[in-house]
């Protein structure tokens, strides 16, 4: 009777020991199964759902059996679990196993809208979501002539351009093909008489005139290539160099002409008729030329631009034997020395 009792005691002890030793192995193996199934769980659910269910359930059962001290059944369960886990892993590697609920070709884990098909309109086509109004201008893409550029309904969803690049969009530009400032509604400011003075600043838009004369031609003078020609005479006090007040408007126009041509250098020539002594005439003509220069200097013309010279009676341009001729010979001329 003692031997069987001893044998039973030994067997029980060994079995218990074996159970204790094998418990960690079962737990480890169950942990490995869990790790494997977690690795591509979504793919397994989609492609090998039954194998995955068995792998997980049997791992759980193996743990339970181990905890209850039933190592044999625990081993059977863990082996079944591992077999199914391997099978599930091998058969769910294909990318298609990631799942694609909406069937748009973008796997669900990468699809921000797994239940809505991507519209594949070459606009954010990788996110898996359809964009009904790409440019968010309130016009749905099928009705939007420019689906990727925001634009108003009246232009069929396209933005208004600025064809002339003047900063005004074509819809608010009265002259969309001509560059023009905003204050002129996008239209260019014209220069009808082509005198360099724009029409909006030109008091004589149809007649050429210098800028300093507000676009109007000079009335009392004429500027040529070689000279500033006076249309009337400069009047001086009799036998003196004092300029009469009546000639001031004429000289003022000369000032304007010099301002309008800021590089011109002018020689002011004084001339007399032949009445009286030549030396007197010489002095008088010089004095008058100098007086004119002084007047112009007083109006702001730079001194270096004005030369004054008296030529006396030496260069008549008319007949000194008549009063009319002598009147013409008494004169002041403006010659352009350099431009």
């Amino acid at each position: 009777m003692r031997l069987p009792a001893l044998a039973i005691a030994l067997f029980t002890g060994a079995a218990g020991l074996w159970g204790c030793v094998s418990s960690p192995a079962v737990y480890d193996r169950a942990g490995s199964v869990e790790k494997l199934t977690n690795e591509q769980h979504v793919s397994m659910v989609n492609c090998t759902p039954r194998e995955l269910a068995r792998a997980e359930a049997f791992a759980d059962f193996a743990r339970h059996e181990t905890s209850q001290g039933r190592p044999h059944t625990a081993r059977d369960f863990i082996e079944l679990s591992e077999f199914n886990a391997r099978k599930a892993f091998e058969n769910s590697r294909d990318r298609s196993c990631l799942g694609d609920l909406d069937g748009d070709g973008i796997p669900d884990p990468e699809d921000r809208c797994p239940e809505e098909k991507e519209d594949f309109d070459k606009f954010k086509d990788k996110d898996g979501c359809p964009e009904p109004d790409n440019d968010l201008d309130g016009i749905l893409d099928p009705q939007d002539r420019c689906p990727n550029e925001a634009g108003p309904v009246k232009n069929e969803g396209c933005p208004f351009m600025d064809r002339d690049g003047d900063g005004l969009s074509d819809d608010e530009d009265k002259c969309p093909d001509e560059f023009g400032p905003r204050q002129n509604h996008g239209c260019p400011i014209r220069d009808s008489d082509k005198d360099g003075v724009p029409d909006n600043e030109d008091k004589c838009p149809q007649v050429q005139g210098p800028k300093d004369n507000e676009g109007c031609p000079y009335k009392l003078i004429q500027v040529t290539d070689k000279a500033i020609i006076l249309k009337e005479k400069i009047f001086f006090a009799f036998g003196k160099s004092t300029i009469r007040r009546t000639s001031h408007p004429l000289l003022n126009e000369v000032v304007l002409a010099l301002r309008d041509h800021p590089t011109y250098v002018v020689r002011i020539e004084g001339h007399t008729d032949s009445v009286g002594r030549a030396s007197s005439n010489q002095r008088l003509s010089t004095a008058r030329a100098v007086a004119v220069r002084k007047y112009l200097l007083g109006k702001g013309v730079a001194p270096r631009r004005l030369q004054a010279v008296g030529l006396g009676e030496a260069r008549p341009i008319d007949d000194n034997s008549t009063e009319a001729g002598r009147s013409v010979n008494r004169r002041v001329e403006f010659h352009i020395v350099s431009k």
């Binding site: 609920l101 909406d102 809505e116 098909k117 359809p130 109004d133 749905l140 099928p142 309904v153």
Partner: peptide, 26 residues
């Protein structure tokens, strides 16, 4: 539910019926 949704909206059609809305915001 998803299956019927897919079957009711075969490939190439407008799944939300956007095409039926003209010139209006969704």
């Amino acid at each position: 539910r998803l299956k019927s949704l897919r079957e009711g909206n075969p490939e190439g059609t407008d799944p939300k019926g956007w095409g039926s809305i003209k010139g209006e915001s969704p």
